[in-house]
């Protein structure tokens, strides 16, 4: 397979192209603009649609239109842009439209700054828009995974007819790594039973209105069952040096890369530390986290670039068996491996 040095942001677009994504609708925002730029360079060469929308709101509604028309479709943005898209994402979820949204998180709240952060965790993982829905959320931590998980995102989106987020931060979006490009998808799923494709066979309805209270409740129950199925089938995580770990660090995205370095340093001192790296944030690997205290684990440290958003879910997963400690940085600061090592030594006396 050909190997190419590329930015995470570009790798996501290659992944989309390989997954048969036929349309990209987006609006520029740092640090996600390279996604739109790469799509504008690649998509027209493949006869696919690239359109720079007039706004984030327009972009997600174009995604709604293209998804409803049965196409694989993607948009990309960063925190403030994702906030603007939330109504449209709720419509996509409520109408069961498969789509892929890439969020390259930056510092917030408000205009914040363009440094890397993970402060969109709540708004992406918990739903974000109005109503009872969940997004599937994948958290790549390398350029390779920006490609691979974007491809997976399209598969999961179609499998569950649901919006799927590729959630990462400015570091992963901006960094370049070697990416082995996989084979393009051979065959796209047939969506004619529900999509609107402009012919007699597909005079379907794309809609999220249920006027009757019982009807809407039933619809929400149905969606809830779908999310439960997703939680059952799609949990993904990676373990690093976990076999005998007594101290476990938990993180995702660029934080997990730093944690890997930190674990190496701590292991070098003969201390048994490991890392649980979350690849899916919804579904959250809660069963795996829940059993951590059943073994020799004496300390759990959640490391995030946000204000304790991830550690909330870790503690919910632990269901009181143990309480996770938190180390976090914000504002565009990425924790260094040494900082984390210091924290580990302070907390667990190693």
């Amino acid at each position: 397979m050909p190997k190419m040095l590329m930015k995470g942001n570009h790798a996501a677009v290659y992944g989309a192209a390989l997954a048969g994504c036929e349309a990209y609708y987006g609006y520029p925002i740092t640090p996600a603009s390279e996604i739109a730029e790469a799509a504008s360079a690649i998509f027209p060469k493949l006869g696919r649609t690239f359109l720079q929308a007039e706004s984030e709101v327009a972009a997600i509604n174009m995604v709604y239109g293209a998804a409803g028309a049965g196409k694989r479709v993607m948009t990309g943005s960063s925190g403030p842009g994702i906030s603007l898209k939330q109504e449209g994402i709720s419509y996509c979820a409520g109408s069961e439209l498969p789509c892929v949204i890439v969020d390259i998180m930056r510092g917030g709240p408000g205009l914040g700054n363009i440094g890397p952060e993970q402060g969109d965790y709540y708004q992406v993982v918990k739903g974000g828009g109005h109503g009872n829905y969940r997004n599937i959320v994948l958290a790549p931590n390398s350029a390779q995974e920006m490609c691979d998980l974007t491809m997976l995102a399209f598969e999961l989106a179609d499998k569950y007819r649901n919006p799927v987020f590729v959630l990462t931060d400015g570091v992963i979006g901006q960094m370049m790594e070697a990416v082995e490009l996989p084979e393009p998808v051979e065959k796209l799923p047939d969506k004619s039973s529900w999509a609107v494709m402009g012919n007699a066979e597909t005079k379907n309805l794309i809609n999220s209105i249920y006027l009757g209270h019982d009807d809407l409740e039933a619809w929400n129950r149905y969606l809830g069952e779908k999310y439960a199925t997703i939680e059952k089938n799609e949990v993904r995580f990676e373990e690093y040096m976990m076999e005998d770990a007594e101290i476990v660090a938990i993180g995702y995205g660029s934080t997990s890369r730093v944690l890997q370095s930190a674990v190496d340093i701590v292991r070098g001192k003969g201390v048994k530390m490991g890392m649980l790296r979350l690849i899916t944030l919804f579904p959250f690997p809660k069963e795996r986290i829940n059993v951590l205290p059943d073994r020799n684990v004496r300390g759990i440290l959640t490391v995030e670039m946000s204000n304790g958003q991830l550690v909330d879910d870790v503690n919910l997963a632990l269901r009181g068996k143990m309480i996770s400690d938190l180390y976090n940085r914000m504002g565009g600061n990425v924790p260094s491996a040494l900082e984390i090592v210091e924290k580990v030594s302070e907390l667990y006396g190693v």
């Binding site: 349309a23 359109l51 509604n61 709604y64 028309a69």
Partner: peptide, 28 residues
């Protein structure tokens, strides 16, 4: 209307329509 149908978010029908038209260039 006995056609293909979308219901759009408030004000966004032209954005939705843009993508629908690009996806199905032969449709009205």
């Amino acid at each position: 209307f006995d056609t293909g149908n979308f219901q759009a978010a408030h004000g966004r029908a032209p954005a939705v329509g843009t993508a629908v038209s690009r996806a199905n260039p032969d449709s009205i």
